[in-house]
Simulated scan of single mutants.
Amino acid sequence: MSVRAFLLALLLLLPLQAFAQGFAGIGTEADGFARPERGTAFDFPADHGAHPDFRIEWWYVTANMIGPDGTPYGLQWTLFRSALAPGEAPGWSSPQVWFAHAAVTTPDTHLATERFARGGIGQAGVEPAPFRAWIDEWEMAGPDFDTMRLRAAGPDFAYDVSLNAQGPLVFHGDRGYSVKSAQGQASYYYSQPFFALDGTLTLPEGDVAVTGQAWLDREWSSQPLSEDQTGWDWFSLSFDDGDKLMGFRLRQRDGSFFTSGTWIAADGTTTAMGDGEIEAEPLETARVEGRDVPVRWRLRVPARDVEVEVAAINEQAWMGLAISYWEGPVTVRGSHDGIGYLEMTGYE
Rank of each mutant, 00 (worst) to 15 (best):
D233Y: 01
L84D: 08
A34S: 14
E343P: 03
A317N: 00
A24K: 07
V301Y: 00
I264L: 14
G255Y: 11
G167P: 13
G32A: 03
L250N: 11
I66T: 15
G274P: 04
P36D: 08
I339M: 03
Y189K: 05
F171D: 11
I313H: 02
G212P: 09
P36Y: 10
S82E: 06
I313T: 11
W59V: 09
L150E: 12
D233E: 15
F235N: 00
F116A: 07
V61H: 08
I56G: 04
H101W: 10
D207P: 04
W263E: 10
I264F: 13
D43C: 07
A165L: 08
R149I: 04
L14K: 13
Q76G: 00
F157D: 01
T40R: 14
D292P: 01
L299H: 10
R296Y: 05
E279C: 10
L12W: 11
L84N: 08
E279A: 15
R132P: 03
W134G: 00
T202M: 09
L14T: 11
P282S: 12
A272Y: 06
I135K: 01
G91H: 09
L111C: 03
G120A: 13
D31Q: 12
P68Q: 12
F42Y: 15
Q76L: 05
S238C: 10
L79W: 04
L14Y: 01
T269W: 06
A312Y: 00
A322E: 07
H101V: 10
W220H: 12
R4Y: 06
H336M: 09
A158W: 00
M65P: 00
A133T: 08
L16D: 13
E88L: 09
R287I: 03
F145C: 02
I26M: 14
G167S: 06
L14A: 13
T331M: 13
N314E: 08
A152F: 08
A112E: 00
D275T: 05
A102I: 01
L10E: 14
D337W: 12
Y60G: 10
E219Y: 04
N64R: 05
T200C: 00
A158P: 01
R35E: 15
L169K: 13
E315G: 03
G22T: 05
A317K: 01
S2R: 02
P45K: 05
